[in-house]
Amino acid sequence: MKTPLTVLVCALTLTACADHAARARLGIQDPTLLQSGIGASQDEAAGAANPQWINAYAPAASGGTALASLQARLNRLPPEQNGYFRAKAQCWISAGQEARQAGDHWGFVEEAIGQAAVITLGLENGTSLSAANPALRTVSVVRPDLWKIVNTIKSDPVTASCREAQQPLACAEVELMQAGHDAWVRNFAHAEKRLPDIQDNLRKSAESALQCKQAAPASAAAQSPAMPRTVTLRADSLFRFDGGNDAAMLSAGRRELDKVARSMKTTATLRELRITGYTDRLGDNAHNQSLSLQRAQTVAAYLRARGVTVPIAIRGLGSAKPVAQCRQTRRDELVRCLAPNRRVEIEFVVAPS
């Protein structure tokens, strides 16, 4: 029985464009776009800029300067961040440059800058990013069938750990948004011209995901020792005492997290990470709760910066669930005894086999 990815590869290889009814072929369902033509009143439903859009994108006064700045920032990111989000930021920058060079004054340049900026800032800061595509004011939905293919590839667990599949997928999403903008300005023919490249990128992504899936059993067998379901890292190895942010992270802790990030790349069925921070019982509860959460957030941000793209659930449990019970009276001895309780646990949630 063929897997969904196999079916997609076949479908994308054989898809061809018909020669009639461009608008119908694009599968447009937006009633405003279907019923309005050039010269229609530009109320908000027809695309007039609303206050929310102006507040979000008015600061992007010089599109060329903003795009060049974003490109320079993206180029400075380390090579290990060459995953889905970096590819998506690059494709948004390219889309903005193309629209600007074409003299597009409908607002798509500003929206492309906004999307690229959000992703680039997240990569720089190591914060969690959403892979969802936002609804943009100047973009209509075209080819819902291709969006279904995007979501099928995206939802396959192997894609999260297969970088070869991530880059063409990210660009296909941005290109579909570009086609949606072409349709929004009633340039249906130009929207259609983008479809072959979109389909080709989706085919490449699906084929790469299949190759990663086929290679996964051999990688898993070669992995020694087998990747555990939960990794416990001593906080004293990760951070300076009573520290939890990136500035407090120790070199030994960074090396440990680098090992974790590398091991995840060989686990094709990885679906989610659950990161939990803990402290010892010294100090007040509010401080311990905040510190444990900060440690979990810092570890998550570090792994994100190393190319980890799977969803990450973060929590801090303070001094709960101690693994060591200590009754020393001297503080230095008590601190040493309580060391196992100061920890960060990383649980790997894999898809059922």
Rank of each mutant, 00 (worst) to 15 (best):
S290T: 15
R86P: 00
R234T: 09
S128K: 05
S224L: 12
R343V: 02
C162A: 14
P79I: 07
M264Y: 05
R137D: 03
R315W: 02
A189N: 12
R336S: 14
P228Q: 04
A58S: 10
C212I: 12
N133R: 09
D236N: 10
F241D: 14
K193N: 15
G64W: 11
N285Q: 15
A49P: 01
W106E: 09
R343Q: 05
H181R: 14
R331M: 14
P4L: 08
A95L: 09
W92R: 01
V109L: 08
A206R: 01
A301E: 08
K259Y: 03
P31Y: 04
D182V: 01
D200Q: 13
D156H: 06
T138N: 04
P340M: 10
P352V: 06
Q115D: 00
A220D: 08
Q178K: 13
A99L: 15
N151M: 08
L121I: 03
A61E: 10
Q101N: 14
M264H: 09
N288K: 10
R342E: 06
D246Q: 10
P311G: 02
A132G: 03
A68R: 06
A99M: 13
A189G: 05
G253C: 08
L270T: 05
G63Q: 03
A221T: 12
N133L: 13
R327L: 13
Q223S: 13
A296T: 05
E98M: 07
R330H: 02
T309V: 14
H105S: 11
L176E: 07
P228M: 00
L338N: 07
D43L: 13
S130K: 11
T298N: 14
R23F: 08
A170V: 04
R137P: 06
I93Q: 03
A172E: 00
A40Y: 14
A58H: 10
L334P: 07
A218W: 08
Q223A: 12
A160M: 10
H181N: 13
N201F: 03
L34A: 07
V141L: 12
A296K: 02
A95V: 04
D145P: 10
L146P: 01
T309R: 03
K2H: 10
I314M: 01
L202H: 01
R76A: 15
V323T: 12
P59Y: 06
A248H: 08
A61H: 07
R203H: 15
Q328Y: 07
A218L: 11
G180C: 00
T159K: 05
Q97I: 10
G244L: 03
M264W: 05
K204V: 09
R76D: 11
L169D: 01
G307P: 07
N341R: 08
M264K: 00
K88I: 06
D242C: 02
S205F: 06
A112N: 01
G63L: 10
V323N: 07
L293M: 13
S292K: 01
L334Q: 08
L77I: 04
L146Q: 04
A247S: 08
L338V: 05
L303H: 12
L195M: 15
Q52C: 06
A87Q: 12
S219P: 01
S290M: 11
A68K: 05
A268N: 10
V174S: 02
Q52A: 12
Y57V: 15
A48Y: 05
V231Q: 11
Q71P: 01
I28R: 03
P79C: 08
T267S: 14
P144V: 04
L14P: 00
G107V: 02
I38F: 13
R234S: 15
T230L: 06
V139D: 00
A61L: 13
A300S: 14
D156L: 02
